[in-house]
Write a protein that binds this DNA or RNA. Structure first.
Lengths: 233, 233
DNA sequence: ACCTGAACACCGTTCAAGT
DNA sequence: ACCTGAACACCGTTCAAGT
């Protein structure tokens, strides 16, 4: 009697699944960066062997792809504002959603680049294009330019967010943000005046800039470009 | 007599150097992608052992950084137009220089993302900021917005070029470009109409788009934004 | 100062075997 | 159908030893 809890098979809730694997992968990536995701660490955390994981997932690349897709999907799952905001505001919300996701999951920046360069237009791209595109349409951009306008926004967002994820990563090691920017800025000021006059001149703008504000200023520039090039009827 | 060519030491021109190592690294990356650059392959090509390489280079990361920097520097080494072109044209030239570099060296896209996210504002960033910034200044942008405007351009360029390097990579395997785009486009058209109305609607714009043209259209949009937000005096 | 090459710890992936 | 875990080939890096 009693002690029936002992089971040869894993209990139902412990059962391995693609979903649980991807979840664990994201946790490892968040905790220890790209280097932290190994099959060794993963099998330990999931209390299985590598063979079990390979039953649910083709290989590590696919696993990374699924992790990226999951995080991006969550980031873009924004409830529409009530009352409805302007297209500009909605675009800002989408952009900030991705910006923050990369800020929270610094490995996402590199992964998106790898991801997009392996299977360019699949999985993650439609999600982003859709979120941005619906607002581009609402902005009154003529249909023939939908693809151009939304691609431009997407590229800027991915480029900028990728660069900015850096700060978060560097700061991880107990480095003060303003201290860090100050050191880079000082380095810029020491560049060769003949080769780098402009960089030297903006060194103090780098020192004082705010990531988020700067990111939104870029979005604003592109939105201005879009509404100027395609004036609403 | 004769046969003095035999030497214990490497001949002077064969001598290992950081420069030769980086050069070989770039060749391996170009030939076989990121996976192609291993210390095994490198030692074979340079006819040495791993220890020799470690004498000139701290580790693989530093080597990748140096390779990236070298390729970017070469890409930005554009001779100024004669007679001088408009700032817009110069910006287009810089942008296309990077675009083409990533097209030629597809590994550059991922590497730039990794690179920038490890040491955000160092090495490669000043080169890009400088090339773009000088033209931003010539455009009449007020000094206080130099950093904002050039950052926005840089982020777009890196984001867009990264995405586009994909095509080149996929096509490597004997895949026809239009055939490939057609398949992706068809996949987009099959997405859920409720979740992806916009993506479905632009599927045929994806099918027919020209990478370079699209890239320049994005640049044009940002330039319009810049000149509208900061009208020349 | 510069190079050699064996050795080390670790990685992704496979596969015969179990249930 | 799903999981186990030993084994394999390969990787970046180190280091005592040579010249």
């Amino acid at each position: 009697m009693a002690q029936r809890t002992q089971r040869t098979r894993k209990s139902r809730t412990d059962a391995l699944s693609r979903e649980r694997i991807v979840e664990a992968a994201v946790e490892l990536l968040d905790a220890d960066g790209e280097g932290g995701l190994t099959f060794r660490a993963l099998t330990e955390r999931l209390a299985t062997g590598p063979g079990a994981i390979y039953w649910h997932v083709r290989n590590k690349d696919e696993m990374l792809g699924a992790a990226t897709d999951a995080v991006v999907a969550a980031a873009l799952d924004i409830e529409p504002a009530e009352p409805p905001a302007s297209p500009q505001d909605e675009i800002r919300a989408v952009a900030l959603g991705l910006f923050d996701a990369i800020d929270w999951h610094p490995w996402l920046a590199t992964q998106l680049a790898t991801q997009l360069s392996r299977s360019p237009w699949s999985s993650v791209t439609p999600r982003i294009i859709e979120s941005i595109g619906q607002q581009v349409r609402a902005l009154g951009v003529p249909k023939g330019s939908w693809f151009t306008a939304s691609s431009a926004l997407m590229h800027y967002i991915l480029g900028a967010a990728g660069q900015n994820s850096a700060n978060g990563r560097v700061l991880g090691a107990g480095v003060d943000r303003s201290e860090f920017l100050d050191s880079v800025s000082t380095a810029w000021e020491k560049l060769d005046p003949d080769d780098y006059p402009f960089t030297r001149a903006v060194a103090d703008q780098l020192r004082e800039h705010d990531d988020r504000e700067q990111f939104l200023a870029g979005i604003a520039l592109i939105l201005t470009g879009i509404t100027t090039a395609y004036p609403p009827a």
